[in-house]
Design a binder for these strands. Sequence first.
DNA 1: AAATTATTTAATCATTTGATTAAAGTCGAT
DNA 2: ATCGACTTTAATCAAATGATTAAATAATTT
Lengths: 202, 202
Amino acid sequence: MNEQEKAEVNLSTEEKFKEAARIVFTKKGYAATKTRDIAEQAGLNLALLNYYFRSKEKLFEIIMIEKVQQLFAFISPALNDTNTSLEEKIDWVAVNYIEMLTKNPDLPIFVLSEIRTNPERFAKIIQLNTFVLKSHFVKQLAERKPGINPVQLFLNFLGMLIFPFIAKPVFHSTSAMSDDMFNQLLEDRKTLVPKWMKLMLE
Amino acid sequence: MNEQEKAEVNLSTEEKFKEAARIVFTKKGYAATKTRDIAEQAGLNLALLNYYFRSKEKLFEIIMIEKVQQLFAFISPALNDTNTSLEEKIDWVAVNYIEMLTKNPDLPIFVLSEIRTNPERFAKIIQLNTFVLKSHFVKQLAERKPGINPVQLFLNFLGMLIFPFIAKPVFHSTSAMSDDMFNQLLEDRKTLVPKWMKLMLE
DNA sequence: AAATTATTTAATCATTTGATTAAAGTCGAT
DNA sequence: ATCGACTTTAATCAAATGATTAAATAATTT
């Protein structure tokens, strides 16, 4: 029994359910996910879901809060760091965000799609996005290009980081590009996206 | 009874159902859409859905084919026009795609999310995407910037056009920006995106 | 060890959902 | 007006789904 197996054995039932829910909700979305799917993924009895979380919806909310935080709040500290330059922020965020998204390629489409379906429901959680928009980073953008709404540049940055992950299943399902090649392309963007951003900031 | 009302009266039951399905599927996605939702939206009897389309799934397929075409094939002719320069293509696509997306803001998230959920299911339809990747446009990109995979630049272009529409509900639900302001920002991108693309192509 | 509490199990329930059915209504041809 | 084909209606069905229940089991407390 190696270390990983030990860790798995020690997972509480509650945690096993959450882990299963992360996988299944992210893959299928809330509506298409059955409670039986989650129980099966967790290898646990269906009734435990209600015992531990009261409802499918409550479990979803827990996972969704995590995932929204992951997508939006991940970069928030870096964006609000007053000790780093605009260029430094761009470099750091590009590398680390792409790395995070590479490990969670379905995160963006999952979160954005659920928000689209129930916008009001997540308004409070995403309030964190307001901190991103009022970040030091956005302030720096405004100073660098005074004639352009900094949100434009912010959308470009975020879009260049996120959109390829959203588009990935399109490339995959059409065999338009091998997975290896696409992943390499994503990796290359760690340096390319900052380069393009800096062009826009000249 | 004005012209519009006349047109509506003449719509066949089948067409009324399709129109309702476009609205509801696009808003809620396949899984969260009930056949009763569609019937209600159409103001028609539920059983007619099966009479005309045999199943929810078949109706969905019809709508999805349309929507995939709209998202991917809309720009295909322009991208394959051998008589226009790279810059001309960029200008035209930016204006017309943003205009199309402004009228169908939910299109991208709907299509991309459904593809994510059932990638294999739409592979044949999206084969059209291969024609985009092998387009004259992508060839032109490769010639202009020989050191960079043209798909990178293509992803940037598409991402700068599409991503803000995907992100719109986030801005809306958090009141991070008024709808008027956000729409203006989208409108501005008709000229800004080509400008940024051209910077990347220098 | 016994009692109490917590967790798990498998069956069941109440409601929802896509689909079917049979009858009624409409339309066009004769 | 009648007939046949097509369309529509409202009720019903069969299966699925989130949730509940009661009993059994396991863990903790006394």
